[in-house]
């Protein structure tokens, strides 16, 4: 007796496994991190208003440099109205004595601060990655010399050396043809941040390269006769994006803070050019009467740095799930 076995005419398709790249996995993890996603949104907003600062200012009808004698009292220059003269016309109030619009000054300050820190971070990352790879891959004497050189740079406290070299270095930059004043100072800040910032990244990259170069895929590339350059840039570099990205997102806020600190001390960006540091330094004289002078710029600066750090933490957790925070 034959048993009828129902044979399905078509085989049941196996559930499709979607291949996901490491990048997609990391992005999926990052998207679940609510603090990091919110921060990313806040940062995107701050970036946009910094880029479109001139447009926004002309739309509201304010300007960071114009003195407004109508917004301040005739004797002593106290802003008219409560909280430093906050009104529809001047959303964050006006400066004591000059009547310059604080909203416009903060927007332009944000622009300069982001410009300096983004350029400096980019140069830092390029230098740090390059020397880290060279040091880790070449090994031997090159590594030893570069290592001692980095030790030397790291022996200088960051803020002190930035402060100490400002006179000497800015003078040289001006002598090389950059216009005197804030143009030279901006170039100085970008250069000094990069020159004294790269060894921190370089150390990390070097360690990564040391372990990567012993891996099988590098060995097989060598066996196939790949050139040193190909191994460095096609085999090793793609594996370094995670530490580079993490480091960059944590360096940027450091540079924002350093620029603000220097301007606060009177050696960074100088008035009449607006900057967070200078605005806060100015607030010291009046914050007893007008606390908003301290809390509005300080609050925005704090939000900027905190959100950057949260994004940085998020990136780290997403790229390296083993080092997750909780």
């Amino acid at each position: 007796m034959a048993i009828d076995v129902a044979v399905p005419s078509t085989p049941i398709p196996a559930p499709e496994v979607a291949g996901r790249s490491l990048r997609q996995l990391a992005w999926a993890r990052f998207r679940k991190d609510r603090a990091a996603m919110t921060s990313l949104g806040v940062l995107a907003f701050l970036f946009l208003i910094a880029i479109f600062a001139p447009l926004i200012c002309s739309w509201i009808g304010v300007d960071p440099y114009t003195f407004n004698s109508s917004a301040i009292s005739d004797d002593g220059g106290k802003p008219v109205g409560a909280w430093g003269g906050i009104s529809w016309q001047h959303p964050f109030g006006v400066e004591w004595g000059t009547g310059r619009d604080i909203f416009a000054r903060l927007l332009y300050g944000l622009r300069i601060s982001l410009m300096i820190s983004i350029i400096a971070t980019t140069i830092t990352v390029v230098l740090g990655t390059f020397f880290g790879i060279v040091s880790g891959y070449a090994g031997g004497k090159t590594d030893a010399i570069l290592g001692r050189f980095m030790d030397l740079i790291l022996a200088f406290p960051f803020l002190l050396i930035v402060l100490a070299l400002s006179g000497a270095f800015t003078q040289r930059i001006t002598a090389l043809g950059v216009p005197e004043g804030n143009a030279s100072r901006i170039v100085y800040l970008i250069l000094i941040f990069s020159l004294f910032g790269w060894p921190y990244l370089s150390r990390i990259i070097r360690g990564q390269v040391l372990s990567l170069r012993e891996r099988e895929f590098v060995e097989s590339a060598t066996a196939m006769g790949a050139s040193g350059r190909r191994i460095l840039f096609k085999e090793i570099l793609p594996n370094l994006w995670a530490p580079i990205l993490v480091y960059a997102s944590l360096t940027l806020p450091t540079y924002i803070g350093a620029e603000a600190a220097l301007s606060f001390l009177g050696v960074g960006i100088l008035p009449p050019e607006p900057s967070f540091g200078a605005i806060l330094a100015d607030s010291v004289n009046y914050f007893k009467l007008v606390p908003s002078y301290l809390f509005i710029p300080g609050g925005i600066l704090a939000i900027l740095v905190v959100t950057f750090n949260l994004v940085g933490d998020g990136v780290r957790d997403a790229l390296d799930p083993r080092a997750a925070r909780s």
């Binding site: 606060f264 301290l294 300080g298 600066l301």
Partner: peptide
């Protein structure tokens, strides 16, 4: 670790 030191001091 995020707050700029001078802002913290001023507050």
């Amino acid at each position: 670790y995020s707050l700029p030191s001078f802002f913290l001091g001023l507050v």
